[in-house]
């Protein structure tokens, strides 16, 4: 056990799975560090250094640099998965989804179903998401609701370093296409992470706080914010259960419903745009299944329905904060 950053935890998961299973390969832009160009070996390790060190250990046969052509290399990864490898492809920013979506939603997501269960597609697409990096509208979105909408995809939103390592190893071993979403602002967050490989099962929510008054469901970076809100509210005598679903597909509906049955109040925090997002989806789930338990209307904490602003003041105002979450909790308690 030692302290590791979110970035190190992901890197360790990749390295340990590549050691364990020779069919695991990694591919993406600048992952090996300058193939076909006069760049240095292992110069970048991906744009934020997550795959650094893999190419020197595993070589260029297993750590591939790709052209800046998401449609080509995501398609190649899906094809390689269907024919025997376990590729982990890095889609640098989830915002680039638009140019490779057919490969994901019409191909990878459909193979098992349309080939009568005779094909598996064990591909992982790692991708960066989220605001707060001063990276403007085309590099800051939280598009996991779009993947969650597609049957046949599994969608993972790790909230911390411990979660990231166990969920990524599970993703690589899973036989279905998995979209693994890494929040770019979390990469330097540090916590205790076991040195040994381990897996966290999909569809099993984590309770990061337990309390009696309000259930807060939060995803990814918002889990830490919800914890901070819960800790602050405890001093006011309000105790919260914080539910981190870990995966939006499959979604651990039971844990969310059971928690609301205990507390009678729900606040959902989602960094994604509010229309057709996880906050709306989880609110509907609870309204349908635990309506009689509710003591107050459900409250959603999301950004406004706008592109992510570039002006720092506006970006800060756009993102949900622990204070906004605490205000929502006080509102449902009033």
């Amino acid at each position: 056990m030692s302290k590791k950053s979110y970035r190190q935890a992901i890197n360790e998961a990749l390295a340990q799975e590549m050691r364990r299973d020779p069919t695991v390969i990694v591919m993406g832009e600048d992952n090996a560090g300058g193939m076909g160009a006069p760049g240095d070996d292992d110069a970048w390790g991906g744009v934020l250094g997550v795959t650094k060190g893999l190419m020197p250990e595993f070589g260029r046969d297993r750590v591939l640099d790709t052209p800046i052509t998401e449609s080509a290399f995501i398609g190649a990864a899906v094809g390689a998965a269907a024919t025997g490898l376990r590729p982990v492809a890095e889609l640098m920013f989830v915002d680039f989804l638009g140019v490779c979506f057919d490969q994901i939603f019409n191909q990878a997501a459909k193979f098992r179903y349309m080939f009568g269960g005779k094909a598996v597609t064990p591909v992982v697409i790692r991708t960066m998401y989220g605001a707060g990096f001063r990276a403007a509208s085309q590099h800051s979105q939280c598009l996991y609701p779009i993947f969650t909408h597609i049957p046949g995809l599994k969608v993972v939103v790790p909230s911390s370093a411990y979660e990231a390592k166990g969920l990524l190893i599970q993703s690589i071993r899973d036989n279905d296409p998995v979209i693994f979403l890494e929040h770019k602002v979390l990469y330097d967050e540090i916590e205790e992470v076991p040195d040994e490989p381990y897996t966290i099962p999909f569809g099993e929510a984590n309770l990061t706080r337990e309390g009696d008054h309000v259930t807060i469901v939060a995803l990814g970076r918002m889990v830490g914010f919800a914890n901070r809100a819960a800790d602050a509210l405890q001093k006011e005598g309000i105790t919260c259960t914080v539910v981190d679903p870990r995966t939006t597909s499959p979604l651990d509906e039971d844990t969310i419903i059971e928690s609301v049955e205990n507390t009678g109040r729900l606040v959902v925090v989602d960094e994604a745009s509010p229309r057709c997002g996880m906050a709306a989806d989880i609110s509907a789930l609870v309204a349908q299944n635990a309506f009689k338990a509710l003591k107050a209307p459900i409250r959603m904490v999301t950004p406004p329905h706008t592109p992510v602003p570039f002006a720092p003041q506006l970006e800060d105002a756009y993102i949900p904060t622990p204070e906004k979450i605490a205000d929502a909790v006080r509102h449902v308690m009033a």
Partner: peptide, 8 residues
């Protein structure tokens, strides 16, 4: 649970 999730 963290212990039980470790490989092996």
């Amino acid at each position: 649970l963290k212990y039980k999730r470790l490989d092996g």
